[in-house]
Structure formats: structure tokens, C-alpha cells
Amino acid sequence: MKNLRLKSARAALDMSQQDLADMVGVSRQTISAVEKGDYNPTIKLCIDICKVLGKTLDELFWED
């Protein structure tokens, strides 16, 4: 399932996938895979992404 919340949170901060990838220490393709729902990130990467985007885990990764 696509993670549109992550994509919109990133876009809201005017960040490219590469910018976010550099800040959390992964490749651009990994961020792309997470957004597309092709890859389930570990909790460590989720937390790193949340910290960079200023969001909580619930806001970005919790599925209702």
C-alpha cells in the first residue's frame, strides 16, 4: 500500500526524495520504495524519517 502521508509530509517541507534520503542515511531508491509501499522499513528507519519530517510514527505509518 502506498504511503501517501509520507510523500505529502516530505513535499510539505519542500524536500526531494534525495534530500530525505541523505538526511536519514539511506538511498533515494529506499525512500521511493517506502513511499510506493514496495518496502516495509524497520522501526529504526521509520523513527529517523519521523524525526526529520517532524511527525510522529502514528501520523506517518499507522494504517487505520
Binding site: G25, V26, T30, A33, Y39, K44, L45
Partner: peptide
């Protein structure tokens, strides 16, 4: 050389 978690997978 550093690989992220998805690359290691």
C-alpha cells in the same frame, strides 16, 4: 562501503 537496510535485504 555502506549499504542501507533495504540494500542489505
Amino acid at each position: 562501503y555502506q549499504y542501507d537496510e533495504r540494500q542489505q535485504l
